[in-house]
Design a protein around this nucleic acid. Structure first.
Lengths: 255, 255
DNA sequence: GATAGCCGAATGTCAGACATTTGGAGGCTG
DNA sequence: CAGCCTCCAAATGTCTGACATTCGGCTATC
């Protein structure tokens, strides 16, 4: 009995590989945008056959964590597997369902945020709110939409619940590809800005119920904008995060 | 120019396979528990190499839709890819975060349910509520826990938002494997039952705000039970749904 | 009739080969 | 010298064949 191997053949090699690679990605060792070593290198580093490795890489690709390009290499595309799945699921849902779920999360997160917010949160929200109140020219509408998105994400983040934050973000991603920038009338924009100010007030005052109520009002207003009929049915569900951006130099082999 | 193939080599064969197989599963053509045809058969049916097919099968396995067993076959394990990913993500989160998110969904679903509930919903809820009010002997605690779970799922389902329902269910699945059956004191059980009755009342009366508030109270009560310190950190994240159950007879080849 | 052993079948893994695509290096031309 | 073109190495995509491992059922034996 020199060597007794049998003990651990619990999980398939490919499964173990998937877990290993996934933890490499989720831990940030392979940041998004990284070009991972070519299959040949990984095969000899990990000591597995190419088929096995490819099965693992394929799984991660279909999970949305990796993206392989023929003739180029394989890149890290996202750090969370929940994202791609959630986006795909949300894209397959009726838009009002997605909006409703997101609204639910946002309202409640606003309430919690009022309880857990830091001084820093309040400062950021106040800045964004003030900014949105100032802009009114049509050409700033794009900036306003961006600020609005940041505002709501900041509110949700102040809830300090990472799982809630993540789900909220993914729903937002799924929606963004669907509705994009909507036009705002002047009166609506003014009301919108005023409500945001009140939301910040409530959060600053640690008024859970008030924050939730204001958030509900904002959500209702937003929904009225979004339900405008038109491009209802499908939209490409690829979302396509940044990827043309930071590609590690191709010839960087050793690291 | 006899044959022009180039037109669609847009996506890799394996990717197309994943989509095909996934739709077979999600459409219900291959119900959960089905033993899918062996690789060899699929290879010749689909006209692809075994490596390619295996890459697709591996991806679906790691997505949690399939489960392969050496020497036996490959079985459909779940019909939604969101489930496994969500369960895994939730299991990696702090329990209080999961509870909180689930509580959020439940509270708002209760409010929405009050608006959208059918007569049938009310009837079912009333039955469950009455049942829970009756049982008090310790040996019925298991049945009570089951009825409680069914009650809450029914409430959420009355919201008629499939995405919300799905996410709620998965969070519940993730939690169930973690906390299992908790003991209830008599007074707590009585309060619990009384609250459920009031929730049904509010839903029947289409009282959105009241339903949400009662649900919030129930959630708070439940949370007090769940936050008892102890087994906090990790718990196996496998969840393991039914699988020993309905296996199609092995020799059933044609269908 | 019960049990132990055999055998076929199915998945798991590896190796090799070729196809296809890409990006860049190098040479050619103006 | 600048710009374009060609060619090539590299990387992923696919297929085939082989062997290992494990499981379920069948059969033969006691």
């Amino acid at each position: 009995m020199d060597e007794i191997k049998p003990p651990q053949r619990v999980a398939s090699l490919a499964s173990q590989l998937v877990d290993s690679l996934r933890s490499l990605i989720e831990s940030g060792e392979w940041p998004v945008g990284t070009r991972i070593p070519p299959e040949q290198v990984l095969v000899e580093q990990l000591g597995v056959g190419r088929s096995t490795l490819r099965e693992a890489l394929g799984a991660l690709s279909h999970l949305g964590l990796l993206e392989a390009r023929v003739g180029d290499g394989t890149y890290v595309r996202a750090s969370s597997e929940l994202q791609s799945v959630m986006v795909r699921r949300a894209s397959a849902s009726r838009r009002d369902e997605v909006l409703e779920l997101r609204a639910v999360l946002e309202q409640y997160a606003s309430g919690i945020a009022a309880l857990r917010r830091s001084e820093d949160d309040v400062r950021q929200l106040r800045e964004l709110s003030d900014f949105m109140a100032k802009v009114s020219t049509p050409e700033d509408m794009a900036a306003l939409a961006g600020a609005d998105g940041t505002f709501h994400r900041t509110v949700v983040q102040a809830s300090r619940n990472s799982l809630l934050i993540e789900v909220y973000d993914y729903l937002g991603t799924a929606l963004a590809s669907a509705l994009g920038g909507l036009p705002w009338s002047d009166t609506a924009a003014a009301e919108h800005a005023e409500l945001h100010g009140r939301l910040v007030d409530a959060i600053e005052a640690r008024d859970e119920d008030g924050a939730r109520r204001v958030a509900a009002t904002i959500v209702g207003l937003t929904r009225n904008h979004a339900v405008e009929p038109g491009h209802d049915a499908e939209h490409e569900h690829g979302v396509e995060p940044e990827h043309g951006a930071e590609h590690a130099s191709r010839k960087t082999k050793g690291q």
